[in-house]
Every structure is written in C-alpha cells, then in structure tokens.
C-alpha cells in the first residue's frame, strides 16, 4: 500500500497557528510588563513615550487637518443664520460688562490703596502662555490632553493650565513642542483647595467622571451648595485663588463639585507660568544641597 504524500501545508499550518498563539501570549505579557514599568516611573519608558508622542502627533494633526477645516466651515455656515441675534445679545452683554468694569476699576483702586496701607506682600505676577488643545481623551480610562505649548514656549512640569473660566489641570509631561496635561477630573489628580467664602482647606480629587470630590474637609465646615472652590496655593506649586468649580451636592461627608470648565468645548487653554513655584523649588534644592 502506497503511503499518502505529506503535504507541506499540513506541517506549516499548525506551526503557524501555534506561532500566532505564542506571539499573542508574549504580546499580552509584554503589555503587562510595560504598564508596570510605566507606572513605576522608569525613566527610559517616559523617554520612549515622549519620543513616540513627538513622532505621532504631527501625523495625526496632518490627517485630521482637512476634516477639521471642513467641519469648521460647515459649523460657521450653520451659525451664520443666527449671527444677527448673536450680535444683538453681545451688544447687550457688552453694555452690562462696561457697567461692571467701572465698578471693578473702583474696587481695584481701593484694593491697591488698602494693600499699600497694610504693606501687603503679594505673590509674584503670573505670566500667561496661550495655546490650543491638540488631543483630548474621550474615554473613562484616563483624563488627559495634549496641548501645543511645549518647553520651547516656556512650559514646565507642574504648571497650571486654565480654560477661560477655571482650572483644567496640571502639566505632567513636557516635550519641545507639546505638553501633556493631567485633567483635574482624572483619578490620579489631587489638588489643595479652599472654599472661597469660609476658607476651609480640602483636597480636590477626580474620579474619571466630569464631577470632582472634596476630600479631608474639616468636620465643622460650614460649606453650602453653590459655594465656589478655588486653589489654596498650599505647597507653592499652583497660584492661589484660581477658580475650579461650585459645590453641587453635599451628602454628609461626601461633597461633590462641578467644574467650571466646559470639557466638551475645550479648545483654547492658558498655561500659567507661576514664578513663585520656580523660586520655591530653587530654594528647596539649595537647602537640600
């Protein structure tokens, strides 16, 4: 009886399948290892991440530039019909703001006189760098964004980033032409804050939703729904009195804050170049030396 010929594919096919399974397992293990290294703050993993981001970012911007332009054009065109009404509303708003401006100027002059009389030592001025949001994570895994303000523009680690209304987050990664901002809503974000009226200190933490939580609030605190939350400036990293949000709900020790930032329309941001943080870190470095 003649033997059946052994086909080449009958040997290769199971080998190929086995190789795929092996490679899949290796891939999963490698990913777990990378997550742990990244979490551990290993220097070269951070450098790899920065290098890759630097390479990938221009490509994504190039791909989406035409789509964005068309989308902006369509958006502008649809808003054109409402332009007349919008202009009238703005005229009324400008008149109201002019009245408020006269009042504010009076208060500023009064404030200046009082500061002079009491020899008040103020924090150094904060320089503002304006930029745009390049990417914005839209998932529940992490709340961060890339902005087009980098080291070349004066961005540094730990600087505060604001929208036109309130605190957006803190710079956690800086490269030449971009920075990564950890949003205040991220689960890893913890910021020292105070309530504006009662000056009760607390820590404001994110939980990857759009709402924020106040932790370590004094038990005798007299906060109420609607109270404004601002940065305390404790620790010297962030300037004091940057608005963050309003207390939305108080349920025993659980205090929920809604942010002033409109996350879905966030486009332009301001990076606060707070000189006091630099002076403080320089002083601490000299002390440790």
């Amino acid at each position: 009886m003649a033997r059946k010929p052994v086909l080449f594919s009958s040997i290769v096919k199971p080998l190929k399948a086995w190789w795929q399974k092996f490679f899949l397992s290796v891939g999963i293990v490698a990913c777990i290892l990378f997550i742990m290294l990244d979490r551990g703050g290993v220097g070269y993993v951070k450098e790899i991440r920065l290098g890759l981001t630097d390479a990938v970012l221009p490509i994504t911007q190039t791909i989406f530039h035409p789509i964005k332009s068309i989308s902006n054009f369509v958006d502008d065109f649809t808003k054109l019909s409402q332009a007349h009404e919008a202009a009238r509303a703005l005229e009324i708003k400008v008149r109201d703001l002019q009245a408020e401006l006269i009042m504010t100027q009076g208060l500023l002059a009064q404030n200046k006189r009082l500061r002079e009389q009491t020899n008040f030592v103020n924090f150094p001025d904060t320089k503002i760098i304006t930029g745009r949001v390049v990417t914005h994570s839209g998932g529940p895994f992490v709340k961060s964004m890339l902005i087009n303000v980098g080291q070349d523009n004066g961005a540094r680690l730990g600087q505060a980033v604001m929208s036109e209304f309130g605190l957006v987050g803190i710079i956690v990664e800086v490269a030449g032409s971009f920075s990564r901002v950890l949003q205040i809503t991220d689960i890893n974000s913890q910021i020292p804050v105070v309530t504006e009226n009662t000056r009760d200190p607390a820590i404001m933490a994110g939980d990857n939703t759009s709402l924020l939580k106040l932790k370590f609030m004094p038990s005798d605190s007299l906060v109420a729904v609607g109270d404004r939350i601002v940065t305390s400036g404790h620790g010297g990293l962030l300037p004091p009195d940057i608005p963050i949000g309003y207390i939305e709900e108080i349920d025993g020790p659980r205090v929920i804050v809604s942010s002033l930032v409109d996350w879905s329309r966030l486009d332009y941001i301001r990076v606060l170049d707070y000189r006091f943080a630099d002076d403080l870190s320089q002083y601490l470095n000299n002390q440790s030396d």
Binding site: T53, F141, L182
Partner: peptide, 13 residues
C-alpha cells in the same frame, strides 16, 4: 495610549 495618555500597553491588551 500615546494620544489618550494611558500607560503604554493598556490599549494593546
């Protein structure tokens, strides 16, 4: 991962 800011290896898993 790079674009959303997650730990490298998170989305590949």
């Amino acid at each position: 991962d790079i674009l959303i800011g997650a730990s490298l290896g998170f989305t590949p898993i």
